[in-house]
């Protein structure tokens, strides 16, 4: 904010005269034009799903495409929200019916929130050590984190499955949460290390001199100072868990255990897709993220300003 305010004000006062103002006006118009065009491109696919989600199936599959639904229907939403049910049969209990979409949503939300919490805690303490302490193997840890990003994740699915099976975490949300934490961890650690690097060590030192333990200094002084960074990393962890498909598909069986990404695949069949349901489901999955996003986005930018991907 301040950067541009100051510099453009300074520019005006020095260059003076109409020509500079005109130049600025032209630049502003070009800036707006470019940003409007790019914004449309970025938003359009999202609007297109929203439009599709209100169309009846025949219109979705039609060769005569209209941007706005000709017949406006809530049927797709009704089907996704209310039409998917499953009878849970538990030993010794009467079978009961659950609404699948809400069940998947609850699973996804639970898993994403717990992943975010654990992921941030793991990453923060690891990043703190890498930033504050010199120790044997520090550089190796940094490099190893980078290397894990180089191995295609998809190929680790089966070994990971076998390990979770061995430790009894298969088909449990705990297993999925741990897996997602590891997926998000390397990038989270890198990010947070940048944030800790940007904070002077003096404050913690002073606290330790005053009798605070090193852990206390980390927890009560360093961590609160990196809140914008924590926000960025939390968002990253949440999205990792909320979006993931392949691990959830392989690890979680049973209709009532699925997450939303896997559940939405119920609209994809042997060869084709029920686009109208898929669209409604997609909108419903995206809405909660969007809401959170509107609140989080200012922290994303300010967070990346302070720490950033500086390595």
């Amino acid at each position: 904010m301040t950067t541009t305010t100051r510099s453009s004000a300074a520019a005006k006062s020095r260059a003076g005269g109409l020509s500079q103002t005109q130049k600025n006006l032209i630049a502003d118009i070009l800036t707006h034009a470019t940003l409007i065009i790019v914004s449309i491109i970025m938003v359009f696919p999202v609007l297109w799903v929203v439009s599709t989600s209100f169309k009846p199936q025949a219109e979705v599959e039609s060769s005569r495409i209209t941007l706005i639904p000709q017949t406006f229907t809530f049927e797709n939403y009704d089907h996704v929200l209310n039409g998917l049910t499953y009878t849970v049969q538990e030993r010794g209990a009467d079978p009961y019916e659950v609404n699948l979409f809400w069940t998947w949503g609850r699973n996804s939300l639970l898993i994403a929130l717990i992943t975010t919490t654990i992921g941030v805690l793991l990453a923060a303490s690891c990043a703190y050590a890498l930033s504050r302490f010199q120790f044997l193997g520090r550089r190796a840890v940094m490099i190893v984190f980078l290397i894990t990003q180089m191995f295609p994740g998809a190929i680790l699915v089966i070994p990971l499955y076998n390990i979770l099976n061995d430790i009894g975490l298969l088909n449990t949300w705990q297993g999925l949460v741990l897996s997602y934490c590891t997926v998000a961890l390397p990038f989270s650690v890198w990010m947070l290390k940048g944030f800790f690097d940007a904070i002077p060590y003096d404050l913690e030192e002073a606290a330790i001199v005053d009798g605070c333990s090193p852990v206390g200094a980390y927890w009560r002084i360093a961590l609160p100072l990196t809140l914008p960074g924590i926000a960025v990393v939390a968002f990253f962890n949440f999205m990792t868990a909320w979006n993931e498909f392949m691990l959830a598909l392989t690890f979680m069986t049973g209709e009532a255990n699925k997450t939303l990404p896997v559940g939405l695949r119920n609209f994809v069949f042997q060869f084709n897709t029920d686009w109208h349901y898929m669209a409604a489901g997609s909108v419903l999955v995206t809405i909660p993220v969007m809401i959170g996003f509107f609140y989080a986005q200012r922290y994303l930018v300010s967070g990346l300003t302070q720490g950033g991907v500086k390595g």
Binding site: M42, P45, W48, L264, M290
Partner: peptide
């Protein structure tokens, strides 16, 4: 503008791919 431009980030990538 900033919100509109980072909107795709909020859409799960498997949904974007399908779209």
């Amino acid at each position: 503008y900033r919100i509109l431009l980072i909107l795709p980030w909020a859409v799960p990538s498997y949904i974007s791919a399908f779209v």
